[in-house]
């Protein structure tokens, strides 16, 4: 398996088309993360696209290629904030110019899980996204993040505990 680092170096060194592999490897986790933030899948896809384009043009500023995903999430965060700001501005317009609210909200979906993931500490979120949304095995994650497999499972274990707490908290606040 080629690492992110390999594709990053290739992209920077005259093979920009290799950036495609980085998109392929990270598009699901990034989109899921954004869906948690934006509560809407279509918006999340659009924001994910923007995230990757920005990442491409900023690739040279990436200091640690091992944590490419965390870096992407950082960019995704900024993109999400901008999108939300733009949306807020839009919602401040007079009612006549507003679309039907139900049309704007993706009601058929519930992004409770992604919202909880978005609230996890960086290190925990990273392994959860890689394990499930990027479909990587623990062994692969150890390789990607350059850590021992025992560390991966420990991190996963703590992430699960946190995730459960967050999900319970959400449930409680819904009940209230």
């Amino acid at each position: 398996m080629k690492t992110d680092k390999y594709y990053i170096e290739r992209s920077l060194d005259g093979h920009p088309d290799d950036f495609r592999h980085l998109v392929a490897n990270h598009q699901w986790p990034v989109t899921a993360y954004l869906a948690g933030k934006l509560n809407n899948k279509a918006d999340a896809e659009e924001a994910a696209q923007e995230t990757f384009v920005r990442a491409y043009f900023a690739l040279e500023t990436l200091k640690k290629p091992d944590s490419f995903q965390s870096w992407l999430i950082g960019i995704a965060d900024r993109v999400a904030k901008e999108q939300m700001r733009a949306k807020n501005r839009f919602q401040q317009l007079p009612d006549s110019q507003l679309q039907d609210q139900s049309e704007m909200q993706d009601c058929s979906e519930d992004y409770e899980m992604e919202q909880a993931i978005a609230q996890l500490p960086d290190g925990y979120r990273e392994v959860i996204l890689l394990r499930f949304y990027a479909g990587r095995s623990c062994k692969e994650i150890a390789h990607i993040l350059n850590m021992r497999i025992g560390t991966v499972t420990k991190t996963l274990s703590r992430a699960y505990t946190q995730l459960r707490k967050l999900l319970n908290k959400q449930k409680k606040s819904e009940v209230q």
Binding site: P16, D17, F19, R20, V23, A24, Q27, W28, T31, A32, A35, K41, E45, A48, Q49, F52, V53, Y56, F57, E109, M113, E114, I128, R131, F132, Y133, G135, Y160, L163, R164
Partner: peptide, 30 residues
């Protein structure tokens, strides 16, 4: 059981995003 349920839920959730394909749109924009 709880851990299992959480993992299953995560697996199901992730399936939701697996039809997302941004490769071409991203490369075209670049």
């Amino acid at each position: 059981d709880e851990l299992n349920a959480l993992q299953q839920r995560l697996n199901q959730r992730s399936e939701n995003f697996q039809q997302v394909n941004l490769e071409n749109s991203v490369m075209n924009r670049i």
